[in-house]
Each structure stands twice: as structure tokens, then as C-alpha cells.
Design a protein around this nucleic acid. Structure first.
Length: 512
RNA sequence: GGCCCGUUCGUCUAGGGGUCAGGACGCCAGGUUUUCAUCCUGGAAACAGGGGUUCGAUUCUCCUACGGGCUACCA
């Protein structure tokens, strides 16, 4: 494996929106590449034309871009091994499949779907543990091992459908090293003669993946654990092709599991449990089905990257917040865990909260401003600064920017109604008299800083024999209409004298 | 069913032959904020079970159980 420059690929198939587990696979590939001064490439594995979904490829590229995973070579950017879309590489795969046939490692098979089905039924009836097309059954099937050369030629000339199957050796132990799992041993008796080349002229994943990894000089195959069972086949392919000396290292990543119950994280879990399973929103072009994404739910991309990185990997320290740069510096495959990780929606929220706090008030205001405008607030240059100050006051209370409006609408509109519970309990003639005085005092206060307003308010209360604490909640409701919010005097300072006096007048008029 | 991979607090995980088995999320309690959130302090909470190896296993090994993946002319 040695000193070849590190090259890794993310190789999704465009069959729908990229799953968040796929994003993590891409991320680990990217981190590994960057950590080792290598190259990260994107290859699109669209060898199954039946499953092609329009828009899926664009979705994948946009999702990676949003996460800050830079495609350095491959689909959308090009490179020395173009094309990177397997459908566009179609013509080159057949020769490799045929080479394997010539070498005696593969063969033509003419069995129809019905014949294959009949074979499986027969084996099941005979109580065979694993009915499959393999060393023991291929002798009973219609293929170039059982048919004469003439018959094969005749069939092919007549345009009969055929596939090329791998001729798995009968009795061999396949050993390969996995960076994450150590040595994995599989006996060829449990492998079947996988189709390498389909009757539609396209390679299967197995062939295309090995050929392309070889041609693109991939040094490390980092992919999900679901590929572990077929890794021995891939090893066999490298051997049969004579490419074993440049066979990539394998690293099979643990899967992302659903938060409740069992099984791998799937599309439905998200909407059922209220968290996204996809990076971006997606609408299925065929069914119209909607799936929500992290981006539209209000997650920051750096938060998503951080939380994804920690699902299956950890730095071995207590540091939990990592920028992409820091992840690159700290990442290594031998700190990737072996077991699946259940996705934890609560922790995901926590991560976003941490990143929300890291944002400057200006950055937050930039995101909040469109929402403020949408709510009908007139925005001038002056209020951009105002929005920024609002963000400063409320950001400690939120996990997401999209919670800002509910926390701050009173900064933009005077309350139309007042918390009924508090009013019913605390509003009376004495209270009205007191707040009338407060209004007058405020009207004559020039220093409207939070500190001074607080002092003035307390002094007024004391002069009227009122414990300031006993009217604070009522005061908050009178000014904001609600019972929760930032430190009240900070809010009052920002609201400004004129607005506060106006609100007192309004409350006095309405609550009378 | 068969094959492969796995198993430390509810969750993500650190650790590794002798540790008070550590951290984080969440949860609970107290304090601060005259509310809420934040913040601070504290707390409950784990080595799946059984054999071996060993002076000593959570750590090494085997078996069982459980979980997961794969088992298509899908990737």
C-alpha cells in the first residue's frame, strides 16, 4: 500500500436524497484525505438505470457543498480520470469482464429469471441452507461452463441475454485486513457467483467499483459496513485481475442506527421521531413525498459536521466542539468505533446550540433579518443594528435561529394582549396607580440605560412601599405581554424610553 | 436459516489485566438570574451471561444470548 498518494472516493448512487449516514461516510473520507494530504473524489455510481432519480446527483453535490466537504476531483469538477459518472464509463467495463472470462475467473451465464427462480425453489425444497448460484450449482445451470463452445457462440450470436458471473473458487479462505476491524476471514463456500456484468450491458456495483478504484488509483476504500460481506468478492476481483499489489485498504464504517428500537436509520424514522434524516429538504419527483433536511430545519452546517463526526469517532480527549479544520487535524481511522451508533436527536440539538452561541450577533442578525421582514417589520438600516442587539439578548435562550421570533417579537411589536394568568392575579387598582407613577418617572428619566432604569424603578417602588420583586413579573407582562424573556431592564434599554412609556400608557388604557 | 460484524451508564463514548470504570447529551436536586433559558455545584446511572487463562479479569480466550449487516442481472 505503501507510499502512493492518498486518494479516496465517495461513491453514492443517485437513487434519491443522500442519507445522513452517507454524509458521514463522505465526511470521514474527506477528513481522512485532508489529514493525509490526499485527494477526495466524488464518483457517481449510476449503473442501475432503473433506479435513477432525477435531481439526486445535484442533491448530493449540494449537500456536500453545504457541509463544507470540498470535491477536489470527480463529478461536478472533473479531473484526470474523467468521466466520473459510471453510466458515462459504460463502454470500458465490458473488456474487464471479458478479460476475467479469458483468465478463467468468470463465465457467461444464460439463465433466465425464471430458471434462476426455479433453481432457488428446488434448492429450498431440498432444504439447502443457502440456495445460491455457486460452485456446486453452476454445473446444473445454463452457462459457458456447462455448454459447449458452439452452443455458447450460437446463443450469443442469436442475441440471447446473458450475464457474466464471477467464478468463485471452490474451497479457499479469503483473508483481508480492514483498518477498523482487523483481519476478516471468509470462506469462499459462503460466497456465490455474483453477477459482474449485466445483460443490459452495464457492470454491477462489484465490477464497476473495483475497476474504477483501480483506474482512479484509489488507496483507501472507506464505506459503510453494509459492504463488508461483499468485500471478499472485491478482494478476489483484485486478485483475479492481477491488481493485488495496488489493492486499496478497506475500512468499513459502523452504521448509523435509529434512536429508538432497532435497525438502521431509515427515511421514515425522521418524520416519525421529529428529526431530519437528510441534510437538505427533498421532494421526491415521482411521488411528491417530502423529506425534511437539517439545513431547512435550522441546523448550522458546522454543527451537523461536528455531530456527525462524533457518531462513530472520537478524538480520545474531552474536547467535543471541533471545526472542520480541527477535525482534519484530529481524525484517524483507528479511532473509529466498530459498533453501530444510535442517532441522538437531543445531542444534535445541543450541538446546534453550541454553534449558535459561537456565532457573532451580526451573523445571527443576518439570518434573523429575513424572518423579521417576513413578519412585517419595517427594516431600515437602523433596525439592522437593532436586530443585532435583539439577537445579543436572546441567543442564550435558543437552540435555533428559527426560535428567535417567538423569543423576541415583543421587541418589534407592542403587545396586543397580556398574559392572562398574571393579570388576573396581580393587576388591580394599586398596581395601576403604581405603573402610572412609573410611567411619569420614566418620562422624566434621561439616562435610559438598563442600570439606571433599574435603579429608578426600584426607587419608585420603594417610595410607594412596594417590594420591587413583587411587581417584577407584572412589569414584564406590561412591557412585553409575556412572562418569559431576557433580563427585563436590558430589554427596556433596547426598547428605549419613548417606546417603554408608550407601552405603559397602552397597558394602563387597556387593562383599566 | 446461512455467512460476516459487533456488545462499557437511557444515548454517544474514554479506558484497558489490579481504576473510586472517566467525559458528554439527557434526567434529577440545589444555587445564580426576582421568571424562563443560560451559568455554577451536586446526584442517580454501565463493563450482556457463563466457562477458561491468571495471584487477579470489564480488559485476553471460548461458548451462549442479544443487536446489526448481507444473503438481486440494487447499490
Amino acid at each position: 500500500m505503501s507510499d502512493r498518494p492518498v486518494r479516496v472516493r465517495f461513491a453514492p448512487s443517485p437513487t434519491g436524497p443522500l442519507h445522513i449516514g452517507g454524509v458521514r461516510t463522505a465526511l470521514y473520507n474527506y477528513l481522512f484525505a485532508k489529514k493525509n494530504n490526499g485527494t477526495f473524489l466524488l464518483r457517481v455510481e449510476d449503473t442501475d438505470q432503473n433506479r435513477f432519480v432525477p435531481g439526486a446527483e445535484e442533491y448530493i453535490i449540494e449537500a456536500l457543498r453545504w457541509c463544507g466537504i470540498e470535491i477536489e476531483e470527480g463529478v461536478s469538477v472533473g479531473g484526470p480520470h474523467a468521466p466520473y459518472r459510471q453510466s458515462e464509463r459504460k463502454a470500458m467495463y465490458r473488456q474487464y469482464a471479458e478479460k476475467l472470462v479469458e483468465l478463467g475467473h468468470a463465465y457467461y451465464a444464460f439463465d433466465t429469471t425464471e430458471e434462476l427462480e426455479a433453481m432457488r425453489k428446488r434448492l429450498e425444497a431440498a432444504k439447502v441452507a443457502a440456495p445460491q448460484y455457486n460452485a456446486v450449482t453452476r454445473g446444473t445451470m445454463k452457462n459457458s461452463l456447462t455448454l459447449s463452445e458452439d452452443e455458447v457462440k450460437k446463443l450469443m450470436d442469436s442475441g440471447a441475454n446473458y450475464v457474466i458471473r464471477m467464478k468463485i473458487p471452490r474451497n479457499e479462505e479469503i483473508r483481508f485486513h480492514d483498518v477498523i476491524r482487523g483481519w476478516v476471514v471468509v470462506h469462499t463456500q459462503s460466497l456465490d457467483d455474483k453477477v459482474l456484468f449485466k445483460s443490459d450491458g452495464m457492470p454491477t456495483y462489484h465490477l464497476a467499483n473495483v475497476v474504477d478504484d483501480y483506474l482512479m488509483q484509489i488507496t483507501h476504500v472507506i464505506r459503510g459496513e453494509e459492504w463488508l460481506p461483499s468485500a471478499p468478492l472485491h478482494v478476489l476481483l483484485y486478485r483475479s485481475m492481477g491488481w493485488e499489489s495496488v489493492m486499496p485498504e478497506f475500512a468499513h464504517l459502523p452504521l448509523l442506527l435509529r434512536p429508538d428500537g432497532n435497525g438502521k436509520l431509515s427515511k421514515r424514522d425522521g418524520d416519525r421521531l421529529g428529526f431530519p434524516v437528510f441534510p437538505l429538504d427533498w421532494k421526491d419527483p415521482a411521488t411528491g413525498e417530502q423529506s425534511s433536511g437539517y439545513r431547512e430545519r435550522g441546523y448550522f452546517p458546522d454543527a451537523v459536521v461536528n455531530l456527525l463526526a462524533f457518531l462513530g469517532w472520537n478524538p480520545g480527549t474531552t474536547q467535543e466542539l471541533f471545526s472542520m479544520e480541527e477535525l482534519i487535524g484530529a481524525f484517524s481511522l483507528d479511532r473509529v468505533s466498530k459498533h453501530g451508533a444510535k442517532f441522538d436527536p437531543d445531542k444534535a440539538k445541543w450541538y446546534n446550540q453550541q454553534y449558535l452561541r459561537k456565532r457573532t450577533d451580526t451573523e445571527l442578525a443576518m439570518q434573523f433579518l429575513p424572518i423579521v421582514k417576513e413578519k412585517g417589520v419595517h427594516v431600515s438600516l437602523a433596525t439592522e443594528n437593532y436586530v443585532e442587539r435583539v439577537c445579543a439578548l436572546i441567543k442564550e435562550k435558543a437552540h435555533f435561529v428559527n426560535e428567535f421570533w417567538d423569543l423576541s417579537s415583543f421587541f418589534f411589536f407592542a403587545p396586543e394582549k397580556y398574559d392572562e394568568g398574571v393579570i388576573a392575579k396581580k393587576w388591580n387598582a394599586d398596581a395601576a396607580a403604581f405603573f402610572a407613577k412609573v410611567k411619569d418617572v420614566f418620562a422624566n428619566t434621561t439616562d435610559f440605560s438598563a442600570h439606571n432604569v433599574e435603579a429608578v424603578f426600584k426607587k419608585t417602588a420603594e417610595e410607594n412601599n412596594i417590594a420591587p420583586g413583587s411587581v417584577m413579573q407584572l412589569f414584564r407582562v406590561v412591557i412585553t405581554g409575556i412572562t418569559v424573556g431576557p433580563i427585563l431592564f436590558n430589554a427596556i434599554e433596547l426598547l428605549g424610553k419613548d417606546e417603554v412609556v408608550k407601552r405603559l400608557e397602552k397597558a394602563l388604557a387597556i387593562l383599566k
